[in-house]
Each structure stands twice: as C-alpha cells, then as structure tokens.
Amino acid sequence: MADYTVSDLENIANKLRLHVVEMTYAARSGHPGGSLSAADMIAALYFKFMKHDPSNPSWDERDRFVLSKGHVAPVLYAALAEAGYFPVEDLLTLRKMGSKLQGHPVRGKVPGVEMSTGSLGQGLSMACGIALAGKMDGKDYKTICMLGDGELQEGQNWEAAMFARQAGLTNLIAIVDRNRLQITGDTEGAVGLEPLPEKWKSFGWNVIIIDGHNMRQILEALDKAAAAKARPTVIIMKTVKGKGVSFMENNAGFHGKACNDEEQAKAVEELKAVIQ
C-alpha cells in the first residue's frame, strides 16, 4: 500500500461513498446508509492499517477483515475494487443476476471477502475462529470485525465477546459502527444498547471510543488496538448514518433504499464536490 496521508484517506473514503451511491442506484436497491457511516473506517483499514495484498488475496500473513454487518457490502466491494482486488467497473454489477457482487458478501465469490455474512450476529464468532487459528499457528496477523450497532441486539455477539476474552484473543479487533439507527429507527427506541461501552468492558474488552468520521482518531484507535497485550479491543465509533450526503444523514429511511433519480443527482453532486 502507498503511504497515504490523512487527507488522502479522507478523500478515498469519499470516493468509496460515491461508489456506494452509484452502485446502489444502479442496483435500485441495497444499503447506502450504513455503508456511508462505515466509509472512513473502511478506507483506513484497506488503505492504511491492514497488511494485505490485492494480487494475492489468500496470502497467509494477511490481516483478515470480517464484515459482520454484511448488508453494507457496497462499501466493502468499493474498497476491494479501489485496492485492486477486481476492476472498479465491476462495481456496477452489484446485486445483478450472475454477478459476483451479491447483495451480501460471499466467501469464495469475491476476491478479498473472507467470510459469508448478511445474517446479523454471526461475524464476531467467525472472527474469533480466524483469530484463534492465528494464535494456534503462531501467526501475527490481526482479525478485524466490523459490527453494526443494531446488530448487537443479537445475543450471539455476546457469546463471542465472552469467548474472545476467555481465549485471550488480543489479535482480534471489533469495530462497532455506532450510527444509532436501525431499520425501525433509533436503536435506543427499539431495544436499547446503552450503556454500550460498559457492556463491552464488563465482558473483558478494551474499549476505545472515537468519532468515526475523524481520520486521525480512527488511525490512532487502530494502532492502539493493535498494540493490545492483555485483552481483545473494541472500537466504538460514533458515526452518522448516511454520512456525506445531506439528505441521507441521520435518516433511517436510507438504511435499505437506493436514491431515486432526483436524489441521485444531488448525492453525486455533493460527493463530487468534496472529492479531490
């Protein structure tokens, strides 16, 4: 990976956002809201933090990323394409019949996708298995798992959280995209997650809380998590669902809906205005 600066990474994140709105618009469906909230972190992971080789997706020493909130596949696919795993042109085949870019990520279909996800609550368990294999084999790769906040209502996450602590998975980093919105609205109005940091702490994890749209904070948090010696680390990143497109921001309506023609023109215009 080239040595990107903070502003380069911010720019890449916005490029990923543009891909997300274009992909979901072309597909006439998909999940732009949570893709946009995760974009800064995804850019930081794939263009700065993670050890990986797009020309050799199964490189043994690579860091592994598991997208537990599989519905934000568009932002993952955009990052993989921009990183060079497959041609950027393929992105517009998202959700179309015969495309490798399925509505939710599929292991074995897309170079760079580690695990099949999409049914919420399972990714952290899978990441525990990958991290455990790394420990067994004496490898020093990191396993990173991105979770939605609403997804934490699934009990399996907490089974995995208990296990990770028990198994001493210091090579595991969980990232919670805390955009506070799920399909039905505010997470706290559905089944509340707060006090969320205390929950993770009580499960034996290091907890780092950051602004998920501040690239410096993101990079610092990842470095701190990578240096953890005693416990697994969770980064709770406070984000804005739909970040970067004014009318999508904090709008649960764009959880699982693409733009119409008029909205699309505006979204593209807004994003192009900030991309260098």
Binding site: G129, G134, F163
Partner: peptide, 19 residues
C-alpha cells in the same frame, strides 16, 4: 466454547476458513 452452540459454529467456520 461453553454453552453457546451458535458461537461454536461461527468459530468453527472461522477456523475452517483458516485451514
């Protein structure tokens, strides 16, 4: 894994994906 079968399957998948 303790009394947590769903977690067991996810971990199993992660282990298998790692060879």
């Amino acid at each position: 894994v303790g009394i947590a079968e769903s977690n067991m399957i996810g971990i199993a998948a992660g282990l298998a994906a790692s060879g």
